Amino acid sequence: MFNWTTTTIINSLEDATTGDKLVKVWKNAENGSGFSGSYPVIKIKRDHTFEARYITNVYKAAAKEPVKCKATLDFVKIVKKLKALVEAGSISPQIYGRLAFYIALEGSEESIYANDMYQKGKPFSIGFGPVTITKDSVVEDAAKAIVKNLVKNATNAIYGKRLFKLTANGETSVVLEGTSEFQRFNFINVAVDDSSEEVLVSDYNFFFENEDSGVSGIKLDERGQNGFGTYLYMIRNLQLPTIHNTRWLHLKEDEKPVVGAKYTQYIVNYCAPSMANPGLTVVGQHNMSATTHVFWVNENVADQFEAFLVDAGINPEAVALAEGNKVKDNTKAGTEFPVNHEQTVEHTKSKKAAGSASDRV
């Protein structure tokens, strides 16, 4: 049929207006929970009351900081290759060249990167020269001249805003870095023009994984990684920053993502008898309702929140977010652990809560 999922942000374990506890545990349901029986019951915020015996799984994923893509280009190595080409007569001593690279996106569809291909991305090219290199040239001097020229020319490569940073790393190398966690370098190369031909000198290509072979001079330091459970992640994936969600004293103010905060994700899988239509008693069939409940808990209170779960006999299973967009275990993705398209999950063996519904049905 359909999947029923709720999503809740928890910034505090106390109600801001009344001071009431937002998470309560009854180890014996009969002692004030409103349920009958001797099993534990846990109530989370105002809307979620779970009988522990019907919780089948609880997964936990910690927040992850974003990492921007970054590469280092060593022009001493690159100039050595240029010098060898000059001595072999393959290119002329007076060199005009360029640093070219392509920035693609993962987890973003920003329109400034729109092109005629399926995946958004944008090419960049920064020229340098003329630089004269002969067999008698000092490699370090030529490298310094190219680095100085590139850093100066990089200031012109702006599309409304700066989409990358190119800075000198000492006098003979440069650092190329993205400005957003969603950017990825698909290729980086250094080429020179000789007559009507372009001669590729050094090359990094993500698809062929040919990064720094020891002589290319191009090394990928960071591929890039999207954040998880960060403020940007929350407003992009859970709560749109509309006037209704950001105005002063908007509805559910305590569920507003906090700038600078990080959130741990807890996913509760619940399978309980259907109260509206408990069964077709003529043939003895019992109907069970399976629902999923996602809680984003501010790291400041995550340990306390988890302590309540453990107190109710529920032990969350930690899962690790994997890099890239490939789902490691297709049997888990989108069922027991709803996966956002920007993140993938690597699961270990599922731990069932004692007396879970799947053990009885």
Rank of each mutant, 00 (worst) to 15 (best):
M234T: 02
Y231G: 01
G178F: 04
S180C: 09
T167H: 00
E211T: 12
H244A: 08
V147L: 00
I243S: 00
D212K: 07
V174F: 06
S196W: 15
E209A: 13
E209H: 06
S213R: 12
T167S: 08
K219E: 15
V190S: 05
E177P: 13
V199H: 11
V201W: 08
S196C: 10
S202M: 08
F208Q: 04
V199L: 07
K148L: 12
N226H: 09
V215Y: 10
D212L: 02
E222I: 04
V151P: 02
G170V: 14
I158R: 03
G217E: 08
G170Q: 14
T172C: 14
F185I: 11
N149S: 15
Q225A: 08
H244T: 12
S195E: 14
R184F: 14
L166N: 02
K165I: 07
N210T: 13
E198K: 13
E171I: 08
I218F: 05
V175C: 11
A154P: 00
G160A: 03
I146P: 03
G224A: 06
S213F: 09
V201P: 09
D203K: 08
V215S: 11
F228L: 06
S213E: 09
E209V: 05
V215K: 14
N189A: 09
V190W: 05
K161V: 04
L150R: 02
S195T: 08
L150D: 03
G214E: 08
Q239S: 05
T230P: 01
E209Q: 10
